[in-house]
Design a protein around this nucleic acid. Structure first.
Lengths: 254, 254
DNA sequence: AGGTCAATGCGTAAAAACTACACAATATTA
DNA sequence: TAATATTGTGTAGTTTTTACGCATTGACCT
């Protein structure tokens, strides 16, 4: 095993790690960042371990920065996974061979396969700003549309589902979009984001009325030109009011 | 150190444990179950460790059963605590002496104080059915009213606050009460439960209309006699419909 | 350059949900 | 048996949500 990797593992918690469901929004689709494991065809969520000196939230921020280059973004816990059936649908022997390939036979053993707790974090990022970077075990990154996610390693498919459910629920008491959209955006773009997350169509006119009623948007004098047909106005979040709505959990009846 | 205790610790995860905020409802008050540590005046939440072979959720069920004697109750994760400031407001030396008293000097060291991840679970229990039982480190149990909780060990005060916030939020998209009330209850009793959790008064008549509109209650022909003045009707949850409302997260506008 | 097209901006009416009370009914107590 | 405090039911006014109409706009096509 690589000495640097070994040193890393020995300076981190052994029984706990972090997995991140990183949501991005692009071309009207909600996407998740996936990593492909070296020498295999197996995809997984980005993740990492927690140093002894850092808080778990700090570790999540660090891991996210390592993978996307982004700081100061929306990032929060959504669930902690520690079932004893986390690998039940998998060929354990094959998985073990993969892990052996990545970590070396002297580190990963059946004990860790038996009970490993994973803290699920979800992040909302601005697609365009992300510089996706693989880690030690992986050699490829992919933004995968939420409805076309392949079979992932470990219990990562379940994690995506739970994260999406938590995100949908969150939509009903907090605004969303600040870290998911570019600084300036149009009302139809914001609507498409909501529709994608909720998985249902919304009325254009009522959506606009509702959003404006929350008083978190600033209408700009500019319009988005270049597209076909009538040019829509651009909006921007009023960060102060947006943050207040986040804190106070003003109900969004959608 | 006691050999049995040592064996227990060695068969469990070292870096992770579970803490439970157990809510009970009694005499119109929302209460939390606390434990007093042996030989100290320090109170804490009930908690425990996770065996290598069990899932974290199973561990939470087991711990809850050990403390309350109850199974098959409402129990769910609400947050995972792993800040590096979990003991920041405490006299670390004094805390360490306490832990030494309980665990022996050969087990607990500064390393575990530095980073220990705690999975916060909350439970809703039927007060009358609980047989509160202390564990190895504790010798006394107490149901403490939510507004009169003393300073607790570790970061347990914060845990109670976070749990209560999660519970309040939950009220807005899921029904509550099945595990918190006796099988048969009156509408005013249910209302007092909601008022206590939400921390605000509700209109009696509107509350009744709303609750009945969810179609999860069954009105019984009996009345609660014995109290002063007019006897109120008894109700019972229709478990099937109640569970469906839980699953589908029908919005409760309260 | 002007008509066509499809999306945007703004508005209104009906339906549903929520809020605030009014009043009769009732089991216990004095 | 009357007094009392609480429960059971209803209703009107207000607000929120839903459904949809219509004029406007900017790019495209001819």
């Amino acid at each position: 095993m690589d000495p640097k990797l070994k040193a890393y593992f020995e300076s981190t918690l052994k029984e706990v790690s972090i997995d991140c469901v990183i949501f991005g929004f692009h071309e009207g689709e909600l996407k998740v960042l996936l990593l492909k494991w070296k020498g295999t065809e197996g995809w997984s969520l980005p993740g990492g371990k927690i140093y002894l000196e850092e808080s778990v939230n700090d570790a999540a921020v660090r891991i996210l920065q390592e993978r996307t280059g982004l700081k100061e973004i929306f990032l929060q816990q959504f669930y902690t996974f520690g079932g004893n059936d986390r690998y039940k649908n998998m060929d354990k022997a094959a998985l073990f061979r993969k892990l052996e390939w990545a970590f070396g036979a002297d580190f990963y053993d059946e004990k860790y396969m038996k009970r490993h707790v994973s803290l699920g974090y979800m992040a909302l990022v601005e697609f365009e700003q992300v510089v996706a970077t693989p880690d030690w075990y992986t050699d490829e990154c992919m933004w995968c549309e939420i409805s076309a996610i392949p079979e992932l390693l470990f219990d990562h498919n379940e994690m995506v589902e739970v994260a999406l459910k938590a995100l949908r629920r969150q939509l009903s008491y907090q605004p969303i979009g600040y870290n998911l959209l570019p600084e300036k955006f149009t009302m139809p773009e914001l609507q498409r984001l909501y529709e994608t997350i909720l998985g249902k169509q919304l009325d254009r006119r009522n959506f606009q009325k509702l959003m404006l009623s929350y008083d978190i948007l600033e209408k700009l004098p500019e319009k988005r030109t270049g597209g076909a047909f009538k040019a829509p106005f651009l909006y921007r979040f009023d960060k102060e009011k947006y943050d207040r709505a986040m804190r106070e959990e003003i109900l969004f009846a959608i």
